[in-house]
Nucleic acid binder design. Structure first.
Lengths: 109, 109
DNA sequence: ACTATACTTAAGTATATACTTAACCTTTGA
DNA sequence: TCAAAGGTTAAGTATATACTTAAGTATAGT
């Protein structure tokens, strides 16, 4: 079943699980930003930021392009739709099932 | 800003970032299941499963109740709405902004 | 050509995470 | 009452992750 494309889900959620990376995403959600500008507000080194960006790119949450010596990063919606879809699908299923269950916790199978 | 409730977001995404934990959630999405039944199909020890369950409970993705010596686990939608909301909010914002940008950054792909 | 800027790579460290096995507690049922 | 079933705790290990500093590489400005 949905175990084939799960690799991407894995990477996206793992990426979102880090608060620094989510901070980066918040910054990028305003507008595209260069690597060093992203690093500014963060209290970690520039290489560290770069590594986070690699993670974010690898799972389709961020896209970037280098022009001259400046790399500009922006949100890539692809990764988000992977994550969003996974959650939405499960949520729909549970809501149905939980509904059907009523509130009885003790269903002895 | 939204930096206050972020702790929960952190934990939920981190929890979802592990494929074994997502497998557990898949199982629970069918119906409530006991700890040892959850462990059955998984190729890890029972204590390991238990630890995953603790992570899932700590972030509101799973709820459980012990009756006699059997602990029955079920999906808790709370955690999912945290994650779903975070994604939905950002997605809405980006879609607006990216739209406004047009294809400003020319797409190399 | 020379220097500064902006990123990139490399290499190492410290902590977190997922797992293990062994031992322990509770409840159930002969 | 005793043993098995179901779960829990403890303790240790091995790998992954997030970070660091130092040393590149390439482009821009003078």
């Amino acid at each position: 079943m949905p175990t084939l494309k799960q690799k991407g889900v894995d990477k996206v959620f793992h990426a979102l699980g880090d608060s620094t990376r989510r901070e980066i995403l918040e910054m990028l959600s305003e507008k595209p930003v260069s690597v060093s500008l992203l690093a500014g507000p963060l209290k970690i080194s520039l290489p560290a930021v770069f590594q986070h960006l690699q993670v974010l790119e690898a799972c389709g949450l961020v896209r970037s392009e280098k022009v001259g010596r400046v790399r500009t990063c922006q949100i890539d919606p692809a990764g988000f739709s992977v994550a969003g879809k996974w959650i939405a699908e499960r949520r729909a299923m549970w809501e149905r099932k939980l509904d059907r269950l009523g509130d009885l916790l003790d269903e002895p199978d």
